[in-house]
Design a binder for these strands. Sequence first.
RNA 1: UCCGGGUUGGGGUAGUGGUUAUCCUUCAGCCUUGUGGAGGCUGAGACGCGGGUUCGAUUCUCGCACCCGGACCCA
Length: 432
Amino acid sequence: MYDRIKGFRDFYPGEMGARRATIDTIEDAARRYGFREIGTPALERAELWTDKSGDDIVEELYSFEDQGGRHVTLTPELTPTVARMVVAKQQALSKPIKWFSTRPFWRYEQVQQGRQREFYQTNVDIFGSAEPEADAEILAWAADALTSLGLTDEHFEFRVSHRDILGGVFESLEADVDVDDAIRAVDKSDKLSTAEYHDLLIGAGLSADQAVEVDDLISSGDLEAVESFADTERVTAAIENLQNVLDAAADFGAREHCTISLETARGLDYYTGVVFECFDSTGEVSRSIFGGGRYDDLIESFGGQPTPAVGVAPGHATLALLCQRAGVWPEEAVSTDYYVLQIGDTRSEAARICRELRERGHVVETDVAGRSFGSQLNYADSINAETVVIVGEQDLANDEVTIKDMDSGDQTQVPVDEFPGELERPTFDEFA
RNA sequence: UCCGGGUUGGGGUAGUGGUUAUCCUUCAGCCUUGUGGAGGCUGAGACGCGGGUUCGAUUCUCGCACCCGGACCCA
C-alpha cells in the first residue's frame, strides 16, 4: 500500500461527478459572458514569484531545478502566468481580453479546512478596461455562477471595498503611519478584540484617539463620512469609483449580493482598486470563500504596456463547503441509463443494442465479466441502472428481448427488431 | 513552525498486558446463467510506523507519520 501525498486528494467517481457538475455550471456561466477558456502550464520559472516576493516565498512553493538547470516551480496561482501570456501577445490580442480557466495549483503549506496543497480554482479575468463596468461584470459573473449552483443571498455575500479608501484615510492622518501595517490590521480586525485591534493600529503609527476614530469611521461604512474625514482627492476618487462599480453592478443584477465593507482589504499587494471577498452569510465558514479585485499595475510590472485588469478566482474546496452546508451540493452517485444483460451466447445481439443506444447518447453498460444472471442484475442495481434490457437465449428464440424497469421491477417483452427501433429513449413505459 | 483532538479490515465500531481480536456494513463467490433491492452459506479484509518497558505490547510509554480542527500565512 502506498499513501497519498499529504495535502493531495483522490476523487472517486461519486465525488468527481459532483465536482464535474459544479465546474461545468460555473464555466458555463463564464462562457455566457464571452469569457474564453485558456490552458496554462503547471510549471513556470520560479523567478515569476521570487522576483516580486523575495526568496522566502520558495518555502511555500513546490520548486526545484529541472534537468536543464532551470529553477522551476509548480504554479501556486494563475495571475503571473496570465500576465505573462498577455504581455507576450499584447499587440495581437483584441481588448478587452476576457479569459477563464479551471485547473489545479500547488502550495506547500499547512493543510486545514478548505485548504489543501493541491487545490482547484476557476480564474476569471478581464484585461484592458479600467471602466467600472469591467469590475461589475466580474461581480456579475461571480453572482451568476453561485446562483446557478443553487445558492442565494441567504448563503453568500460579497463584501466590496476599494483599496485606496483605507490607504487614503491612513495617508490623510496627521501622523507617521505605516500604511501597509495599518491596512493589515484592518484586514484582521474581524478576528481581533477591539483592544488588540487598536493596539495594532497604534503600532502602525496612529495615536490612541485616531485609532478609535478610524475604527468607528471604517466600521460605519458611511462613504460620505469617510470622504469628508479624509478630504483628499485620492479618497474622493476611490469612493466615486466604488459607487460607479456598484451602480453598474445594479444594472447587471449583482448589486443585491454586494455589501460595502471598508474592512475588506485583501492581503495581496498587487490590488489597486476595487477589492471584494465572498463570505458565507451564515458565518459557518469563517474564512472567505474567495476574493478578487482590480490590479491595474501588474501587466506593466511584467514588462507590458500599462493595462488595467480585474479578476476573481473562486477556489473549489471552499465553494464545495459552502454548497454542502447550503444543501445544494450535487448528488454523489453514478447514474446509468441502460444495462444490457446477456444470458448465454447473445453477445452479438446485445452488442448491437448497446451500440444503437450509445449512438443516441445514452450511458449503456453490459457484461464484460462473464457473470451470472443474478450477479448482472445485482451490478445493474449497484450502478443505478434505470432500465435493464435482458437479452437472453430464450428471448431471442422468440425474437424478443425483455425490458425491465429497475425502479418498479416491472418488465415486458418487446420484439428484438423494434428495440430500440426509431425510439430516442425507450423505457418500460413505452411498451407497457 | 506552533497548539488541541485523533488513528483497530474498504466504511463504522467493541475490546484486551497473554492462547484463534468483537459486531455491523461492504466487497467477491455460491444457493441462483431467467430475475436485483429479502434471506442463507462460503470467502476476503484491521490493531498507522519505529524505539522503549515487559517473559509477553494492539493495550503502557516515547518519537515519527498521517487524519480532523485551529494559530501563523494567504502572493
